[in-house]
Design a protein around this nucleic acid. Structure first.
Lengths: 251, 251
DNA sequence: ATCATAGTCGTCTCCCTGACGATAAACAGG
DNA sequence: CCTGTTTATCGTCAGGGAGACGACTATGAT
C-alpha cells in the first residue's frame, strides 16, 4: 500500500495528567473545573493539546508547569521535581463528542505542596481524594455528598493511574516522590499506607526499608518532629528498583 | 481558553505492533520489509494508520490479523488467540520525516506459528531473533552478518516491548501465551529461559509452577513427546496474576 | 542391555516475612 | 517531677519460599 498523504484521517492529540499526591494521609488527585461544554462545570483531569513541534512528554511537562508550577523530572532522579511517566493512551472514537481525539495520559507523583495549587491559572483547580473521585466515576454510593463523575473517560484514566502508582511503589523507590527531599521512615510508611489503603506494621516496615540496599540514605541530620520520639532523616538513594520489593498485603 | 476547532494541529495516528513469539528457544519478533521510502528496504515493525471510526485496540487487532492471520484476545483469557495489550505511545516531532505521526504501540504475545507467517499479505515478513534486532538498533557488534537497524524508532519500541514481556511474565501467567493450548512444564520452562535468556533449574521450576495456585491445570491427557520421559500436559488456569511471582534470577 | 534425555519427587539450608514484645525519646498535664 | 501518650527503633521467633542438588522414573536411540 503506497504512501498517500490524503489516506489518513486527522486526529487531535492531547495529553491528560493524573497528578497524585498524599495529603492528610489520603491519596489525592489534581482536578480542574471545566469552563465550557462539553461537561461544563464538571471536574476533569488537567491537560491540553500537544503543539505542532512538541514531543509528548514535553507537552505533559508543560501542562504540568502551567497547572501547578511543578517542575517535572522524567524517570531517573526526581531531585527537586515531580516524577513524570507515560501512563497509557486513550482513543475511543466517541470519547470526545466534538471530534476525534487521542489522549496520551501521563502520571505525575508529587510531594504534598505547601500552597494548595500554586502557579496555576485562575481557573479553579483542587486536590480531591482519589477514592471519592473513583467512587463517583464508578457510580457507587450515591448520596447527598456524592461527587459528580469526572468528565470524558477521565474516571477510567484516573483509575488506571492510581493502579499504576499502587503497583509501582511495590518494586520501585517511587514512593519517595510523594515525600519532601528529607523525610522519616514514618512519613514514608504513611505514604505507603495512604496509597495502598492499608495499615502496615511500623516495626517490620522500618526493618524492610532500611534493609533494602540503595533505597534510603541517612542524611545525618538525625531528628525532626512529627509527634513522639525524634526520627532519623533520609534522602532517596540511588536505587530505582527495589530488590526485594515491598509487598502489598494480600486482599 | 475557549474551544477553537482550528486551534489544534492535526496529527496522523498509527499503531505499531511488537509481535513476540518463541521459536527454537529464542525470543523472536515479527518484522516486515518496507517497500517504499523512507527507510525503503529496511525492516520495520508491522503497523498502519488508525481509521476514522476505529478504536486504537481495534486498529491493532485488525493490523495483527492482516499481517499474521492471528486472532487477538485483549487481556483476559487468550483462549485460542494471542495476547494483546497496549505498550506505549511514541510521538517525537521528527520520528517520521514525512509528517507528524503519533504511534500507539501494542504488544502481542503469540505461540509459535506452524506456518512461518500465515495469512499475511504478499509483502515480505519474517520472524527475527529479538536480540539480533536490538543489537542492530543499538549499533553493537557490527560485523559481516550484522543486521541493519529497524526503521524509524522501532528499535526503541521493540526494546520497550521486550522489556515489558520480560517483566510481565514474572508476575502474570502470560508466559503461557507463548505456548500452544496444551503444553508441558518443560515447554513452559523453555519459554521463560528464552524470554529471560537464562537457564532455570528444571526441578525448582517444576515445583514452582505446579505449586502456584491457578497457574496450571492438568488436562489429564498425561503425556507427549519432547525427548525423554513423557510429561504431563497442562492448560492455563484461571489465575492471571501469579502469587507468589516467578523470580527472574539476579543480574 | 545400555546410554542419553527429560520429567518428577525429596531434602536441606538460607533468608525474608509477619506477628509481636520491649525499649527509647520526645511532649502534655497534673 | 512523675505519668501517660505518641512515635521511633531494636530484637526474637516461627513459617514459607527459593536455590542447590541428589535420586528415581520413563521414554527413545544405539
Amino acid at each position: 500500500m503506497p504512501y498517500d498523504p490524503s489516506a489518513f484521517p486527522p486526529f487531535a492529540v492531547t495529553v491528560d495528567l493524573v497528578v497524585l499526591t498524599v495529603r492528610k494521609d489520603a491519596l489525592c488527585s489534581l482536578v480542574v473545573r471545566r469552563g465550557e461544554p462539553p461537561y461544563q462545570g464538571r471536574w476533569a483531569l488537567p491537560g491540553g493539546f500537544v503543539r505542532d513541534d512538541e514531543g509528548l512528554e514535553a507537552a505533559a511537562s508543560r501542562e504540568l508547569a502551567e497547572e501547578t508550577g511543578l517542575r517535572s523530572q522524567a524517570a531517573e532522579g526526581h531531585r527537586g521535581g515531580a516524577h513524570l511517566e507515560q501512563l497509557a493512551t486513550y482513543g475511543a472514537p466517541q470519547r470526545d463528542p466534538r471530534m476525534r481525539v487521542v489522549s496520551v495520559a501521563y502520571l505525575v507523583l508529587a510531594p504534598d505542596l505547601p500552597s494548595p495549587v500554586a502557579g496555576g491559572d485562575a481557573r479553579s483547580a483542587r486536590w480531591a481524594p482519589s477514592d471519592a473521585l473513583l467512587d463517583a466515576s464508578e457510580g457507587l454510593g450515591r448520596d447527598a455528598e456524592q461527587q459528580a463523575p469526572l468528565a470524558f473517560d477521565h474516571g477510567q484514566i484516573l483509575q488506571d493511574g492510581v493502579e499504576r502508582a499502587r503497583s509501582k511503589i511495590e518494586y520501585s523507590s517511587l514512593a519517595t516522590a510523594f515525600c519532601p527531599p528529607e523525610f522519616t521512615v514514618g512519613e514514608l510508611r504513611r505514604v505507603y499506607e495512604a496509597v495502598w489503603g492499608v495499615a502496615l506494621d511500623p516495626r517490620n516496615f522500618h526493618r524492610k526499608v532500611t534493609g533494602t540496599p540503595g533505597f534510603l540514605v541517612p542524611t545525618g541530620g538525625t531528628t525532626t518532629r512529627q509527634g513522639g520520639r525524634p526520627a532519623q532523616l533520609f534522602r532517596t538513594g540511588e536505587a530505582t528498583v527495589l530488590n526485594p520489593p515491598m509487598l502489598r498485603p494480600e486482599a
